[in-house]
Design a protein around this nucleic acid. Sequence first.
RNA 1: GCCGAAGUGGCGGAACGGCAGACGCGCUACGUUCAGGGCGUAGUGUCCUUAAGGACGUGAGGGUUCAAAUCCCUCCUUCGGCACCA
Length: 816
Amino acid sequence: MAQKYCPREIERKWQDRWAAEHLYEVRDDDSRPKFYALTMFPYTSGDLHIGHWYAMAPSDVYARFKRMQGYNTLHPMGFDAFGLPAENAAISHGIHPYQWTMRNIENMRRQLKRIGAIYDWSREGGTCLPDYYKWTQWFFLKLYQAGLAYRAKAPVNWCSECQTVLANEQVIEDGLCERCDTPVTKKELEQWFFRITKYAEELLRYSRVDWPEHIKIMQTNWIGKSKGAEVSFWLEHEGVDQKEVRVFTTRPDTILGVTFFILAPEHPLVCQLTVPARKAEVDEYVAWCRRQTEYERVALGREKTGVFLGSYVVNPLSGERVPIWIADYVLPSYGTGAIMGVPAHDGRDLEFARKFNLPVRVVIAPVDWSGPELTEAYAGSGTMVNSGEFNGLPSEQGSEAICALLEEKGWGKRAVTYHLRDWLVSRQRYWGAPIPIIHCDKCGMVPVPEEDLPVLLPADAEFRPTGESPLKYCQSFVNSACPRCGGSARRETDTMDTFVCSSWYFLRYTSPGTKDAPFDAAKMRSWLPVDLYSGGAEHAVMHLLYARFFTKALRDMGLVDFDEPFSRLVNQGTIIYHSDKMSKSRGNVVAPDEYVAELGADAVRGYLMFIGPWELGGEWNDRGIVGVSRWLNRVWSLITTDYAGRAVDPEADKELLHLLHKTIKKVTIDLENFRFNTMLASLMEFTNYLSRVRERGVVADPLWHETIRCLLLLIAPAAPHLAEELWTTRGHPYSIHNQLWPEYDEEMASEEEITLAIQVNGKLRDKVLVPASISETEAKDLALGRDRVKAYIDGKKLNRVIYVPKRVVNIVVAPL
RNA sequence: GCCGAAGUGGCGGAACGGCAGACGCGCUACGUUCAGGGCGUAGUGUCCUUAAGGACGUGAGGGUUCAAAUCCCUCCUUCGGCACCA
């Protein structure tokens, strides 16, 4: 009897040898077709948890599968290393963010190596290293030069006690500051933006990508394209220079139903349009709004609030004066920050009108409408009424007619609006890539010259618990010379959103050592775009949209030659623990280390594949992990026990060959479709079958050995250590991971006999084993002749007989 | 609230218009030169039945179809995202 399966020993042995012999290092000058399989890099939170393994183990299995299929496969790994938690650690534990992050990287790299993946560590990258963020800054300058980076005022979370900007995460329940429980308000600050909205239209197109439908839908809804019109309402307000205020509407056909007008509380005209008598109330309301989060504000079920400014606008179409209100459900960031109130045809407007006793005027009549007031807002199409010259027109035509009139008179125009807002990239923090801009009193904003990059983060910054950016008080950093006039100047102290760093990391892996450019152009061209990108569903919108935007911007600068960064995308589901996404910041992580120590990395990899469909994720539990471990043990003993064909039977050979090809086919197709759970189930079934064959010794020795060889190749991506060990002990040349994937013969994989189900009126009444080649007539006759069936159809009227090839005969009968 | 996804045995799940419960966990029984949480064999949705067999059964309710876990509508629950966590 051979020795026992001891994963600890063999996993360490092979990981060491693979590393020592650079088995997984990828060459750029390989003649085989390339495959770029990328898994989203982890944030350097400190420890790798089960959620990370869930993302990484199955994607490694897929990359290994592609490698065995003969592709030169690049499967790199790195670290998303800038961000808020490092700074929090600096404040609470007195450790510098750099130290904290590098220590975490070291630990995570060690843990990652235990997965047994084919990561090419010679290409590892980290976004917080000057060699990397130099190029993040370089891209910022490129975007700035291209007019895609600009500065503008924007509201931020502000704690008046700490005198600091807060991340959304630092605002705790009820809108309080996590540090001092002071109510958080909004404050307007100069911020940096990337003009992602310039690409809104192109970002809606997915013809060049193979992405899951639901991800495309989420992005499409996030971009939120609406067609309609911009309309000017006239202002006749003493002391106000502006003579009009614009709204965006998707329903120009309802302009004659306007009975009030609402500005966002943050709208620049609010102050000027408020009459003195109402100023106090308006100010109080605006202050209250600044404490609301955006999605509190737009929540549909919420009771409507608002304040009348005391002034009016004139509807250009009717000449009618309507009152101007402010209300929190009108957002400054969408459209023009102003809406026309049409209570008859918008649910929110109707609620508002009812709350404040404003008139409701029906202008679009639903079918069968006879004139009474509507009980709820009618947002559909219909016939125009109460609309003067437009009466009687279907609303779609009316919309066109009104747009034409608006354009003719110069009162408005057809317009398209997007929900997508420009990307706010500046952060008032230390631990990010500094924005490479210098502020000079004489020259204004001056970009840092390329040759002066990187703008290094100062090592001597102080981390005080005020929450204010340490860069602001770091004189050695702030004080600088203007690159243009040489005079004294101040450095920009904002750093970049970490999503900027992660918008181009996939380019750097192709040529990580490149000194004079973010990447080597030829190597980038040979590897990109990424063939398969996998990662958490939580990145469905933001990260993926930002990376797409970045790619398109780079393309327009001539830096890359493709339109989409990720040709194919797969989102694995989220691992939940205690009813919450497993993550360090939520404090509900489960470490894989103990499982790995006890059962081995192969068992943990296998279990994560086996627990269910990869794209679903689910609540973590370890019941059942022993099932995979036992299977690996069964494989071990199946293969390490000598085989002897004592009772060789040609029929058994035939059956084995059929099941072998059927299994190769199933495993291949399941892998191609990321169905790791059913792939493993079919390998288990085949293993169980082989155990019975071995007991009986019914197949010839050469066939047995060939079958075992194929089985090991099929197992190799899932359990790379076990497969390597058994492969070499059976005398095959090192390494199994350089072998080609087994092929299957379609004919051998197909069934010769099938079980036909026989139903009467849709209920299963009998089953019969028949040759797969059975004809429709034969099948129907056979079914009608079965004794079991006769009992249900005798004395009844035969209505029809339905035959589904190779599956079912359904006999439909009715009482006579 | 809005956008997206998911609800199937005691548990993870399979089937994705055609035999509901593959594979595995757990449990039960038996066996084992079995120290063990080891290995092997058999059984295991619920109810009725000695059995053969039958009835019911995929979150709830309705619909389409010869046939629905699967398609459509309404609702409920859970999870992810909602623009400064990453």
